[in-house]
């Protein structure tokens, strides 16, 4: 077990978002978290990455209590994330972007009197990451001028440059055309193999991608875990499927299940 969430409760004021979420992620797993809008997926990710402190419950990563420790410390322990909406440094070139992740992992962020361009360690590793993500031809393009798909890839690539053991991908293919989606997923899977990533957790709406790539699916609804099972089992779980696809009348079934 590499990551575990124990009885996470989180509310904003009176508005409860997570109502006792527990699950475990093991080494080598590709886990998808699914659920309708407002199910608490983003809040869950923010709690898992230590950005938000839950009202109750704890998160453990490799035996460290990481509840609310913040993303910077967490990245040093070996967990990173990418974002649902394109989250880039607009004025950075592709290489600068990746280098930032690399130098951060190498613990060189506070080196204020070394010339970055002459740091071979950083440059070589950044070069490697750029090649894995097929971005090496665009090394000097400013991030804001990249096409949408490449922006997404760059966001993920910089997270991978931290060489994490666990990576959280918040809708890695949202806002990207269908034809590009599979290409991005393949690059991601390939990259995690090459860079020794142990587990991937993704939040995804595209069910083809969820069922196509996951070892396990966690369905979230109204701040609770509705189902936690393999894709094959999930297909048989009518209530959970229903909640995810969100057809009429489903809400009743789901609510009754939760009680």
């Amino acid at each position: 077990m590499i990551l575990s969430a124990n009885e996470i409760f989180k509310s904003y004021g009176d508005f409860g978002v997570l109502a006792g979420v527990s699950f475990q992620i093991h080494e080598g797993e590709f886990v998808s978290i699914i659920g309708p809008n407002g199910a608490g997926k983003t809040t869950l990710i923010n709690v898992l990455t230590g950005l938000l402190k839950p009202n109750n419950g704890k998160v453990f990563f490799k035996d460290h209590d990481i509840t609310g420790i913040g993303p910077a410390k967490l990245s040093r322990l070996g967990m990173a994330r990418s974002f649902q909406l394109v989250n880039i440094f607009p004025t950075f070139t592709v290489m600068e972007f990746i280098k930032l992740g690399v130098l951060s992992r190498q613990g060189k962020g506070a080196r204020f009197y070394a010339i970055l361009k002459r740091d071979r360690e950083v440059n070589e590793e950044a070069e490697e990451v750029a090649q894995i993500f097929h971005l090496e031809d665009k090394r000097d393009v400013q991030a804001k001028n990249l096409p949408q798909g490449d922006k997404k890839l760059l966001d993920v690539a910089s997270a991978f440059a931290l060489r994490p053991e666990v990576i959280l991908l918040d809708e890695p293919t949202s806002g990207v055309s269908t034809s590009e989606k599979n290409k991005i997923m393949e690059i991601l899977i390939d990259a995690s193999k090459k860079m020794g990533i142990k587990s991937i957790i993704q939040v995804e709406h595209d069910m083809d991608l969820v069922f196509g790539f996951s070892d396990r699916i966690i369905a979230l609804h109204s701040g609770k875990v509705l189902a936690d099972c393999t894709p094959a089992e999930m297909e048989k779980n009518e209530a959970a499927m229903c909640a995810v696809v969100g057809e009429k009348g489903c809400f009743k079934i789901c609510s009754s299940l939760l009680e």
């Binding site: 993303p71 990245s75 040093r76 607009p90 080196r111 931290l162």
Partner: peptide, 28 residues
């Protein structure tokens, strides 16, 4: 030297997008 250094790049990251910088391990 400072603006061309590792630190200089980290500062620009903090300016451009503090949230992303934070997630890349930069203590903003």
């Amino acid at each position: 030297r400072i603006v061309s250094s590792h630190f200089g790049l980290a500062l620009r990251a903090v300016r451009d997008n503090p949230e992303k910088a934070y997630y890349l391990g930069i203590d903003v």
